[in-house]
Amino acid sequence: MVKLHIKKGDEDQFLIETTVQISVEDLMKLLIPIYNGRLKVNRICSEIEMLAESGASLPPNMQGLTEEQVEELRLVDEWTEKCSPSGGYDFKRDVMGRRNGRSPSQKMKDVLLKTVKEAKEMISKKKIGEGVFVTQNTVDEALSILRGAVTIVYPMNLPPHDPIRMEFENVEDLAGTQASLEILNIEDSAIWWAGKEFQRGKNLQDYVGKNEKTKILCKLQKRGGGPPAREPVVNEDERKAMMSYYYKKQEEFKKLEKESDDEYLNSDWCDNNALKRQFQGMTDIKWKSGFR
């Protein structure tokens, strides 16, 4: 099975395993859902962290308003009591004005944050270095444990306008957000390797050969953007090591330039009286100030 190291721009994404006989169309159908799924998991994790901190989301018409404005407009959040966290809550006002401030108890908060950490680790880019493959099942499992944690803390479910519930129900509205720019569509996306775009209608083996033990680094991007930037010759750690080495050499060269040709005469091994003082026990003598 051929291994594909997937990147988007300069960022590592995930590692997958497939066959060289797969068509480019099927490869895109395999990659894009995983890529978008990882984005969804990260979005949900970010929202759950805010949920654990400041409670469920307020209705859209109440978000960003002060208490005085809410009273003046006579707005009421009918979901506050219906969607209260299990085990009680601690009131902590949301400085952004997006959530109702009913933070779950510490025990329930720990459940949410622990699950968020676990889900992030499942889809982490660190899995590439560990040689762990990410599949659609991995993404689905991460979504499943996040959904389970939210259900434990909010057995009556979250309000229908809460971003977390909307993400789980696949009705999220990302229009006008940075997140919408990150999402890729199968039809409008391309995959590049070795300066070549994989053309639909061909198979992977048309580009990488028939060796199933091949490992290649591919880049995902939107079509029509031209070839992505080539990978640097050395990685970041090697670059830092080289810079450190040359800086050290440069400092040593500067030091040598400052030293005169007869600087060595000031060294201990060039002192003609060193042996005499050693026999007289006069070495390492420290003179006190004011001594006469």
Rank of each mutant, 00 (worst) to 15 (best):
I6A: 06
G9P: 04
F14T: 02
V20M: 04
S23H: 06
E25D: 15
D26G: 02
L31G: 00
L39H: 07
S46Y: 06
E47Y: 07
E47R: 03
I48E: 03
L58R: 11
P60I: 11
P60W: 05
N61L: 03
E71W: 08
E78D: 09
Y89T: 04
D90P: 00
D94I: 10
D94L: 11
D94W: 07
R98D: 06
R98H: 05
K117I: 01
K117H: 07
K126A: 12
K127S: 09
G131V: 06
V134I: 13
V134M: 02
A142E: 00
L143F: 04
L143K: 09
V150F: 06
M156G: 00
M156T: 12
L158M: 10
P163F: 03
I186W: 03
E187M: 10
D188T: 15
D188G: 05
I191R: 00
A194Y: 07
R200A: 06
Q205V: 03
D206N: 13
K215M: 04
K219C: 14
G224I: 06
P227H: 01
D237V: 14
K240G: 00
E252S: 13
F253Y: 12
L256N: 14
D261H: 14
N273F: 14
K276R: 13
G281A: 13
M282H: 08
D284T: 10
I285R: 10
W287Q: 03
G290C: 15
